[in-house]
Design a protein around this nucleic acid. Structure first.
Length: 508
DNA sequence: CCGATCACGC
DNA sequence: GGGCAACGTGATCGGA
């Protein structure tokens, strides 16, 4: 079996090769030269779907159905396995031809297929987590939550379920606290933004904000993660390749792409991700990856030159758009510029910007106008892309990844506007995904070539995380930085910042 | 079981 | 006039 699977002269098509190869890797077999993964191929053809089951592939690409019943005397599992193999083999050439006619052979063969084995290996290696530290942290948090509950009940004059937005709204009503906002279902809104407003006047609002943060850390991380640590002391989650419509990976069971980093309390969770004895963690982050891609795609001269000159892009925006002059002025305006720069990639409108920056809608309108007057190429892009999506039905990343927009001509303004924003964002986020996947493939190959023990263990969209023996740190860091920065050649440089530490927090 | 709401990441 | 930042995962609530 191993001989067949590692034979380079045989073509091999699979359905969900990561699962198959992951199982083989555990047995010490490393399959090579996978010709096709029909699940991944179907994802590249239309990444907007939520899943790609074999019965869908049979129906959509072979115009056949899977068997409704199993013949007498045949084991069901065996039959379905044979059927899966049959459909996989028959659908593979059909998908290949569609990829070819879409000009997507390269994103498939050079990015997605090689990514599969990298992900299988990462899942197999996993991440070491200090479960005892998390359990201690959970106990500590729980005490603080109880103290918070007592204070909240005292203020409310009664007990209530703090975890229920509905009951929080009821308590606000009883205390004559006006939130002003309602949710889509007509309930009193207790969203974070509303609570921040109320916290100016009412202590209870701040306490609920604090409670929610701590309860999140307790339930989702401190209590959940230790249960997932396997006998090897590590968590082996899933990295999903066919979920996100833009080409990003997603992470489940558990989600290791949303480990806290922002708040002091949350950072305690991140500190529990550690290397084995004798190893360190290496974190490598692309600096401003999406904005650099935006500069490249739009060919905007001002933004492109800023990146070429190695300038601080947010400070640059603060000067050019907000007219910042002296240092003191710059500090505050840089903060605003940062919000605007991020908003632009998501096609933010005046209203959204105004609530985020804390200015009036008219002022926000002017900021956006000034922004486009400065970065003229970006305005053109924002105008062109929705038109392209309306004309072709899809837009694409720099490497040919596509996303379709079936509702971009919808009569409903909300539906249409949403698809326009998604279309504007996709080439940016999609190209970032392409580049990071290429980097993963190339770093993995380079580490292997150099016979290093350093292992890639996580990807968080613009960050790669590695675990390395202490004596390999310098060499591995150099390889990682080099391969990531040269993963794509754009009209602006790609810059990667590398950090080393004894936990994920300190490696940043 | 599922939609709504909330919170975490990029 | 409406509705209002892209992409995700997961915990919890509360009604069906």
């Amino acid at each position: 079996m191993g001989d067949i699977l590692t034979n380079k002269f045989l073509q091999k098509a699979a359905f969900d090769a990561k699962s198959v190869n992951g199982a083989l890797l555990k047995l010490g077999i490393r399959p090579v030269d996978l010709t096709d993964d029909v699940m991944v191929a179907a994802y590249i053809l239309d990444p907007g779907r939520t899943n790609y089951p074999i019965d869908f592939l049979a129906q959509a690409y072979l115009d056949t159905d899977i068997a409704r019943s199993i013949p007498d005397g045949i084991d069901e599992a065996a039959f379905r396995t044979a059927e899966l193999a049959d459909i996989t083999a028959r659908v593979a050439p059909v998908l290949r031809e569609k990829l070819r006619s879409n000009d997507q052979e390269r994103v498939y063969a050079e990015i997605e297929l090689p990514t599969i084995d990298v992900l299988a290996e990462m899942e197999l290696v996993g991440m070491k987590v200090d479960g005892d530290a998390l359990i201690r942290f959970a106990a500590d948090i729980k005490q603080q939550l109880e103290a918070l509950s007592d204070r909240l009940f005292a203020i409310a004059g009664r007990e209530f379920n703090i975890g229920s937005p509905k009951q929080v709204g009821e308590v606000f009503a009883e205390l004559n606290i006006e939130t002003g906002k309602k949710t889509a279902t007509g309930q009193i809104s207790t969203s974070h933004d509303v609570l921040v407003e109320l916290a100016q006047t009412y202590e209870i609002a701040q306490l609920i904000i604090d409670y929610r943060e701590m309860d999140k850390l307790r339930a989702t991380y401190a209590e959940a993660l230790p249960k997932l640590i396997r006998d090897d002391g590590r968590i082996h989650g899933c990295l999903n390749q066919t979920v996100a419509a833009t080409g990003r990976l997603s992470s489940t069971d558990p989600n290791l792409q949303n480990i806290p980093v922002r708040t002091t309390l949350g950072q305690e969770i991140r500190r529990s991700f550690i290397p084995e004895k004798g190893n360190k963690l290496i974190s490598a982050d692309y600096s401003q990856l999406e904005l650099r891609i935006l500069a490249h795609i739009t060919q905007d001269a001002v933004m492109t030159n800023a990146f070429r000159d190695g300038e601080d892009i947010h400070a640059n925006t603060a000067r050019l758009v907000f007219g910042a002059t002296d240092e003191k002025d710059l500090k505050e305006k840089r903060r605003l510029a940062k919000i605007v720069n991020f908003g632009i990639a998501y096609a933010v409108e005046a209203f959204g910007l105004s609530t985020r920056v804390g200015i009036s809608r008219a002022e926000a309108r002017k900021v956006i106008d000034d922004y486009f007057a400065t970065y003229k190429g970006i305005r053109k892009y924002m105008d062109d892309i929705p038109q392209q999506a309306k004309r072709d039905g899809f837009v694409k990343s720099l490497f040919g990844r596509r996303r379709y927009f079936p509702s971009i001509n919808d009569r409903n303004f909300t539906v249409r506007a949403r698809q326009e924003r998604e279309a504007i964002n996709m080439p940016i986020q999609g190209t970032a995904s392409d580049i990071v996947k290429i980097a993963m493939i190339n770093v993995d190959k380079a580490l292997r070539n150099e016979k290093l023990e350093t292992k890639m263990i996580m990807q968080v969209h613009d960050e790669l995380l590695f675990e390395a023996p202490v004596n390999e740190i310098e060499q591995a860091s150099a390889i990682i930085k080099r391969e990531m920065e040269t993963a794509a050649k754009l009209d602006v440089p790609l810059i990667v910042e590398v950090g080393v530490g004894d936990n994920w927090m300190d490696a940043k």
